[in-house]
Nucleic acid binder design. Structure first.
Lengths: 188, 188
DNA sequence: GTCTATAATTCGATAGAC
DNA sequence: GTCTATCGAATTATAGAC
C-alpha cells in the first residue's frame, strides 16, 4: 500500500525537475519549488533530508524516464539504424526547449561539474544510460571493435550541437546539423 | 597617466577570472575573490558597481586575451590550414584544465544562459571572436559558400568534445577526438 | 583611494504546533 | 502527515572612518 504522502513527494519532484532544468540547480530555491508545486517548503524536509537529496530524486526520475523511452524505442523500431534515427529525431522534437534551456543532461552535468562533483557523478547516470544504449545499437550494426568510442563520439556531437543551438538560440543550426548526423548514421 | 588603483582593479579581475572559470560565476562569492586577490571585498565597489559589472570586466579580459592569441597565430602561421591546426592544438595544450573545469567559453555561456540571458549575450562575444576568425580561415581555404556554417560546425564539435571530456574526466577521449578533427581539417 | 563594519536580503534547514 | 514560524549562515551591497 502506498502512503498518501507519495503524491506530495511526486509533486515536489516534478516541480523541481522542471525548475532545475529551466533555471539550474543552484539558482532554484525551495521557495520557487514551493510556489510551483503548491506545497510549503517546510514540508520538503519530511520527504528529503536536504536539497542534494531532492536533486538525487530528480535525477532518478529523469533516469527512469529515459530508460522507459529507450524501451519504447526498442519495441517500436526493429533495426538499430531506425533506433539511432529515432534518437536524432528527439533533438528536432524538443527543438524549442533545447533552444531555450539546452540539453537537460549536458547543462546539469556542466553546472554540477564545477564544484559539486559528488552530485555530478550521480548525474552521470543519465549519460551512461544513453551511451550504453547507443553502444548496443552500434554493436548490432556490426561495428564490433570500437562501438563504445563511437557512441561517445555521437553523444559529443549531439552535446556540441545542443550547446551551440542554446548559446545562439538558433534552431536553424540545430536542423542543419541533425540532418548531417542523419546522413552520418545512414552511412555507418 | 594611469591611476594607482588600476593595479588593484586588475588583481580583482584576474582573481575573478580564474575563480569564475573553476567554480562558476554564481558559485563564486566576493569573499572568495577577496581571499584570492588579497583585496578586501568592500573595496570592489570602488571599481565595479556590482558583481555583474565585474563579470563584464572578466569577459572583456578574456576577449582581449583571445584576440591577442589569434593575432599571434596569424603572425606565426602563414596558411589557414596551419592556423586551424593550431586552434586544435590548443585543446591538447589545455588538456588538464579542460578535463577538470571544461571549456571557459562553453561552461560560462551555459551557466548564464539559464537565467541571466543579459549577461550571456555579453559572454557570446567570446564565441563570436572565435567563429569570425574560423570563418576567415575557411574562406581563405576556398570554401566560399558556407564557411560560416562550417565554422559553427567546427566549434560545435569542439564544444561537444570539451563537454564530454569534462563530464567523464577522460583526456583519452579528448586526444582521440582531436586526432579525428585534425584529419578532418586536413581534408577540407 | 583604501578598508572595516554592517545593513538588507535570501538561502537551506529546523522546531514544534496541530 | 502537514504546515507555520523562524533560525543561523551566507550573500551582495552600502556607509562611513581613515
Amino acid at each position: 500500500m502506498i502512503a498518501k504522502g507519495q503524491d506530495n513527494r511526486q509533486s515536489i519532484v516534478n516541480a523541481a525537475n522542471e525548475l532545475f532544468y529551466r533555471r539550474g540547480y543552484n539558482q532554484t530555491s525551495f521557495a520557487e519549488i514551493a510556489d510551483a508545486s503548491g506545497i510549503p517548503k517546510g514540508n520538503f524536509y519530511y520527504y528529503f533530508k536536504s536539497k542534494d537529496e531532492l536533486l538525487e530524486a530528480v535525477i532518478a526520475e529523469r533516469v527512469q524516464q529515459v530508460k522507459a523511452m529507450l524501451v519504447e524505442w526498442d519495441a517500436q523500431f526493429p533495426t538499430p539504424r531506425e533506433r539511432l534515427q529515432r534518437f536524432l529525431s528527439m533533438l528536432l522534437a524538443s527543438e524549442e526547449e533545447l533552444t531555450r534551456h539546452g540539453c537537460p543532461m549536458g547543462t546539469l552535468n556542466m553546472e554540477l561539474g564545477k564544484i559539486q562533483q559528488t552530485l555530478q557523478s550521480r548525474a552521470m547516470e543519465m549519460f551512461e544510460v544513453f551511451i550504453n544504449w547507443l553502444t548496443c545499437q552500434l554493436d548490432a550494426l556490426g561495428h564490433g571493435e570500437e562501438t563504445s568510442a563511437l557512441a561517445m563520439h555521437l553523444m559529443a556531437r549531439v552535446q556540441g550541437i545542443s550547446l551551440m543551438t542554446h548559446a545562439y538560440s538558433d534552431p536553424v543550426f540545430l536542423r542543419r546539423e541533425v540532418a548531417q548526423l542523419r546522413n552520418w548514421v545512414d552511412q555507418l
